[in-house]
Simulated scan of single mutants.
Amino acid sequence: MAELILHHYDFSNYSEKVRVALGYKSLDWSSVIVPPVTPKPDLTALTGGYRRAPVLQIGADIYCDTRLILRELERRHPLPSLYSPGQHGFANAVAAWAEGPLFRSVMLYAWGTNHDLMPPELFEDRARMRGLPVPSVKSVERVAARSAPLVRTQMSLIEDMLADGRPWICGPNVTVADLAIFHAMWFLTDRSSRLAHEFNRFELLRQWMSRVKGFGHGRPRSMSAGEALEIARASLPSDPRTSLRQPEDPKLGSRVEVRAADYARDAIVGTLTFVDDDELAVGIHNDRVGDVVVHFPRIGFELREER
């Protein structure tokens, strides 16, 4: 089976989400460290311009966004499962909350509290991604203070989810909901212990965090970006599965643009090779990597014919 190559960086909470999934499934994988800020010439050569981390590479197939990365890991390594029957819809709904209102509050609180520990260029880079002015130190501290009560309120919700004695967020089985909530909670304490006190009154949440941390990160080995690009160049994209187009979708083989729906909206332009209810895939060519196929989740990305 083709090698799993994760392009990520250490304090990326979404990367941690995938690292824990690799640990839960006890997988071997190769670790390519990418810069946390642009430029990212090696990563964008693989992705056609997509700049967010993490990205999962399997030969000449490149998977973007953790929602799709986890589904692809599940497809290739189905046991132990992250998508238990009867819990899939519920788990995805919880994950949508965790990666929306919950994580936004956590991110603003943690960044404002730990701004002196962050790379100095990080705030400028993230502001540029969103088309906003670079915030001042005082403004991020004010936003952190406003976000703190929202974080505590939502931590209480997590505590309540576990109050009936269930070991995992959706019941007896681990699901994507556990990973989505964990990556938000992990962000509170990753850079420092300044916010560790927020867990003091949430005993069930602390115990659950310990269980998730116990999955570890699987068995990583270091790989250079150059080696990963050579693997892509020497590989062929996998044959596309049968597409299930919606009537409004562009035709297979047409030139299309794919953009994130929220921020970092640079277009990835290529040939549409696959589309169904969950996934979009476009073929691109780059002189550094040859022909690759870049995959995106359907939700959270826009698909349109090239203008």
Rank of each mutant, 00 (worst) to 15 (best):
I33R: 14
D28E: 12
K25D: 05
S31C: 07
R67G: 14
S15G: 15
S81M: 02
L68H: 13
P80R: 09
K17P: 07
K25A: 08
L56F: 14
L43N: 09
T47C: 05
R52M: 14
S84K: 08
L82N: 03
K17Q: 14
F90I: 11
E74K: 10
A45R: 01
E72K: 15
T44L: 01
H88G: 01
C64G: 04
N92R: 14
A53Q: 05
I58P: 00
I33H: 08
P39N: 09
Y24W: 04
L73F: 13
R76P: 01
G48R: 03
L22R: 07
D61A: 12
R75E: 13
I69R: 03
G59L: 08
R19E: 12
R19D: 10
I58G: 01
K25Q: 02
L73S: 13
Y63W: 15
S30W: 05
S15Y: 06
G89V: 14
T47A: 04
D28K: 06
I33E: 14
K25R: 10
T47M: 06
F90N: 01
P54R: 12
A45H: 01
I33V: 14
C64K: 03
G49Q: 12
H88N: 08
G59E: 06
S30P: 00
G86H: 09
Q57K: 12
I69L: 10
N92L: 14
S30F: 06
A91M: 09
L82S: 03
E74G: 09
S31P: 06
V55M: 07
S81G: 13
A45W: 04
